[in-house]
């Protein structure tokens, strides 16, 4: 087959940890990839039939779900937020660990204390709404794309749902972590139809699986 596979990886947080894992699976980007000045979005790899695209984390899931990219790496937070039916997340790469949590300033009462409605600022409106529904609360989500932490201080919403790794950013903005909604780690994702129809995608999954289940550094 002449058509190259496209592998989508997110900018930012996960990338540095993902590169060594990808390398062990035989996905090695060309040198231009590491050049900070390079503005390209597509990169060749050492494999002729494989190219990389570097996009925003949420777009990794969208590209793969639509089959525009056949595989990619993205956090489980993004996978849960979209809940795309055409996406498989076959391998937990055990990198990019953090958690998705509900946070609020100290003076805000506990969630569920008689409230049936509340306003939450988040990058994850679907996930947040579903989680609050399970607590019997109707959450009105204000979708923000970043800097959720300032929302409570400015009166946009009293609670936020955001990724937490050390908790420092929350503390610096006078917020307390209240509930952990989910533990997050990076996953290999693949497109359902591509996995079924292209043997190369299955091989890629097998290779990442071998790394994830094998001893560290093997």
């Amino acid at each position: 087959m002449a058509t190259p596979l496209t592998f989508a990886i997110p900018k930012g947080r996960i990338l540095d940890e993902a590169l060594p894992v990808m390398e062990r699976a035989g996905v090695v980007p060309e040198r231009a990839f590491h050049d900070k000045g390079n503005r390209s979005l597509t990169f060749a790899t050492t494999r002729e039939d494989l190219r990389l695209i570097r996009v925003r984390a949420f777009d990794v899931a969208t590209f793969v779900a639509h089959g525009a990219a056949q595989a990619g790496i993205v956090g489980s937070d993004v996978i849960e937020e979209f809940d795309y039916s055409d996406l498989y997340a076959p391998v937990d790469l055990d990198i990019g660990h953090c958690r998705l949590s509900l946070a609020a300033p100290a003076d805000v009462p506990e969630a569920g204390a008689g409230a049936s409605h509340m306003r939450v600022a988040t990058k994850y409106p679907n996930l947040t709404r579903r989680w609050f529904e399970r607590q019997g609360i109707q959450a009105e989500c204000v979708k923000l794309n970043g800097a959720m932490e300032i929302a409570p201080a400015l009166g946009l919403a009293r609670r936020i749902v955001d990724l937490v790794s050390t908790g420092r950013t929350l503390a610096e903005n006078g917020l307390e972590e209240r509930d952990v909604i989910m533990q997050v780690s990076a996953r290999l994702i693949v497109n359902r139809a591509a996995l079924k129809t292209d043997p190369r995608v299955g091989e890629l999954v097998e290779r990442f699986r071998a790394i994830a289940s094998g001893p560290e550094g093997a």
């Binding site: 996978i79 996406l87 498989y88 997340a89 076959p90 391998v91 937990d92 780690s185 996953r187 699986r209």
Partner: peptide
């Protein structure tokens, strides 16, 4: 359905993991 071995174990489906392979 998600083919997620880690989450499958967490959900108590250890015995079902080989099906993923």
């Amino acid at each position: 359905d998600m083919k997620d071995a880690g989450a499958l174990r967490e959900a108590g489906g250890e015995g079902y993991v080989p099906l993923l392979y």
